[in-house]
């Protein structure tokens, strides 16, 4: 078997494979599963629905109504919120998109490379290096932010997106390295070795064998990096000070201030708007969660 055939992914539907006979007996648990899932789903959906309805309510009703029924339908928060800040909200969405794009690419490339080394290569001090990697994510950001700021200021990076993106290009997100390590270790070694007999070096094994087989891990990384970066407030607040460069989480805080008059309607409206891209990415990205070794036809 060659690497080429291994790498092709071919989605298959599982239910169709099952023998007809047992289909009937399955129906009852299925219905139960659906009922259970729908119940859970309602609990899960409630906050989102509440947020959407809140964005359609007059400001003074938001904090008194946990319910989902709207007395006064008020669409104005959307155009108002979109235009309230110094720039149309779209420009903050764009800023965030830039940061997110850089971060996703950075994490995908750098973390998968590091993961390959940790999972597949023998080298000195591997355990130490792995432990060191995990240690780096055990310190809370609040004691690191000042030295980081000083460092980035020395580099002239304050007020650019570099402090947000460059660390991702350098695999500082140990979460994803570890995640990918676990996935790579789940890929049978025989596949690498088969490729190696064909004369493939590590670069080729990594690109042609491992990467295609860890699509679910890559999809997970993409989705999480997207969402976490999209929602990350603290570092974006500290490192980016020019209001024109503000990202979505920082821009959203402009609607509220604990000490003065806030516009929660606009906050909720723009929060809903800013959720749309994330949700779309999730919807789109989760399709790739389905493609893994399980659907490659095996060896």
């Amino acid at each position: 078997m060659t690497t080429e055939t291994l790498a092709t992914t071919e989605p298959t539907t599982r239910p169709g494979k099952r023998p007809l006979v047992i289909k009937h007996r399955r129906r009852r648990p299925r219905v139960l599963a659906h009922v259970g899932l729908i119940l859970v789903a309602v609990v899960m959906l409630y906050p989102l629905l509440w947020m959407v309805t809140s964005s359609l309510r007059p400001n003074d009703e938001i904090f008194t109504s946990p319910g989902l029924l709207i007395d006064t339908f008020d669409l104005s928060h959307y155009p108002d919120g979109w235009n309230a800040l110094s720039k149309p909200f779209g420009s903050y969405l764009l800023n965030s998109a830039l940061v997110v794009l850089g971060s996703v690419v950075g994490n995908l490339v750098s973390c998968s490379m590091a993961a390959y080394a940790f999972a597949r290569l023998q080298f000195r001090a591997k355990t130490v290096a792995f432990a060191a990697m995990l240690l780096t994510i055990m310190l809370p950001v609040h004691v690191l932010i000042i030295p980081q700021y000083v460092m980035f200021a020395q580099l002239g990076w304050i007020n650019t997106y570099l402090p947000l993106i460059v660390p991702k290009l350098l695999a500082t997100d140990a979460f994803f390295v570890f995640l990918m390590v676990q996935f790579v270790r789940g890929i049978p070694r025989e596949l690498d070795e088969a490729a190696r007999i064909d004369g493939a070096g590590h670069a080729r094994i990594f690109l042609q064998v491992i990467l295609p087989l860890m699509v679910p891990a890559l999809a997970t990384t993409t989705i999480f990096t997207f969402i976490w970066t999209w929602n990350d407030f603290f570092s974006q607040l500290i490192f980016v000070t020019d209001p024109d460069l503000y990202t979505v989480p920082v821009a959203l805080r402009q609607f509220i201030d604990a000490q003065s008059q806030s516009d929660f309607g606009a906050l909720f409206a723009m929060s809903v708007v800013s959720l749309i891209p994330v949700f779309l990415v999730f919807l789109f990205g989760q399709r790739f969660l389905l493609r893994g070794i399980a659907t490659t036809g095996g060896k």
Partner: peptide, 28 residues
């Protein structure tokens, strides 16, 4: 061969560790 490859595959991470992560950690 593995060691050499590891140096390449780990290069971004090492650079990040030395250039970005370690400094603030030691400072703290």
């Amino acid at each position: 061969r593995d060691s050499k490859a590891a140096a390449v595959f780990l290069a971004p991470w090492l650079l990040g560790l030395v250039g970005i992560t370690i400094g603030p950690m030691i400072a703290s």
